[in-house]
Design a protein around this nucleic acid. Structure first.
Lengths: 219, 219
DNA sequence: AAAGTCAGCAAACAGCTGTTTACTGAATGA
DNA sequence: TCATTCAGTAAACAGCTGTTTGCTGACTTT
């Protein structure tokens, strides 16, 4: 008499695990959407569950905290980035063509994963320590991966490991900076995008010229 | 009878304007302190006034919102950075010595203005639009300023304006990245600081080699 | 000396927050 | 078929939030 019981909370007929996964995704997607205009440290449990269509208590069936949800988002965001970087590193051909492809891949990735990339840029130096740590760890791994790929190229035959790592860090930082620049571009303005791309290509050209003429310090 | 009146709220004897400024500073300093572990978008009025030793209502005698306070912090933080960049650009001498000085100046600045720099790094891509815009505008000005300084050097005699701007952007981004790297260093670890400094110097060397051998695109 | 300014206050407002509780009922496994 | 599991719920908890109000009393001007 006091409360009406709740009728079928899910489109019945699906497996239980699939139902749960669906809710989990709803939470992650809702959070990512809210994080477009907001910082992770100011996100609220109720806010997320409201946007995802769950009751507040439901949140705790999936995550201990918002930090945990944040770390999950980091993992997802970096997963796709990882694939992109592998794609870039696998490219072959003359340097000029390679630079062109690299920047195009970055631009495309930002266009197709805007929310993820913005999240990474925003939380890389954000106020939530575990999230910052997760991002930093993964970026370090990218740098190592890049260094390994560079060491296989003939241009770096006589490079020391330290120098390769230094160069890889420069490339990764440039990649991140370029992605962030694409983000700032007034969403959809091809003109702005092309200006950013042109500049990024020139910067990569300059760096690869430096690379070609590099001679390690203690000469 | 109902409420006891408040006794002298300030160390009497000071001018009114000075008293007000003192409270304003207390607010800004308290905010900056809180922003060490937090994002601007999650900062609260009550939180700041509590830390500054004011009543909540007192906040509104100084700022309309927290966004306004944020923009003020941006202005202050970038003011000191501006001075630093001028210092770097004014340096003269052989490239190697110049690079060394540049990195040293950055390291020193981060050490002495930790809170300001962390704030800038954190809010550059943060969730508060007006603050983001203020930072972006000032960074663009830095780039222009750097381009102007570069154009005065003999190494860039035959450089186009666009190429100079591209190079300046690369330098500024590298500067910002280096400052952020110093921030991550386990506060006080000279070893970590020196590793970062060494890498930054090598990267600057590589860039300046690229600069020396640069020939514009449409050749 | 009298009048005016205004920084700071306490109190009250409605509305929000994270988290826990005891419950329900569909999907699952015996 | 019956017992178990467990994702999701509504309700309640104490505690927090931004902002407005009317007031006070020290400084400042006249």
């Amino acid at each position: 008499m006091s409360h009406t019981p709740t009728p079928t909370p899910h489109p019945a007929g699906t497996s239980r695990a699939a139902q749960k996964e669906q809710s989990r995704r709803a939470l992650l997607d809702a959070a990512l959407l809210l994080l477009d205009h907001q910082n992770l440290s100011s996100l609220g449990v109720r806010e997320v569950t409201r946007a995802a269509g769950l009751s507040p208590a439901g949140f705790y069936r999936h995550f201990r905290d918002l930090d945990e949800l944040g770390v999950t988002l980091v993992t997802e965001s970096l997963g796709s980035l990882h694939l992109m970087i592998e794609k870039v590193l696998a490219e072959q051909g003359e340097p000029e063509r390679l630079i062109e492809r690299t920047v195009a891949v970055i631009a495309r990735h930002v266009r197709e994963h805007r929310a993820h990339i913005r999240f990474l840029a925003r939380e890389r130096h954000g106020g939530v320590q575990p999230v910052r740590a997760a991002i930093a760890a993964e970026f370090a791994a990218f740098t190592e991966q890049t260094a390994a790929a560079l060491s296989l190229q003939e241009e770096s035959a006589d490079w020391s490991a330290a120098d390769l790592s230094m160069l890889a860090a420069l490339y990764v930082e440039h990649l991140v900076g370029t992605a962030a620049a694409f983000l700032e571009a007034p969403a959809g303005s091809r003109a702005a995008e092309q200006r950013i791309a042109a500049r990024a290509r020139d910067q990569l050209r300059l760096i690869s010229i430096g690379r070609r003429h590099w001679t390690s310090a203690k000469g």
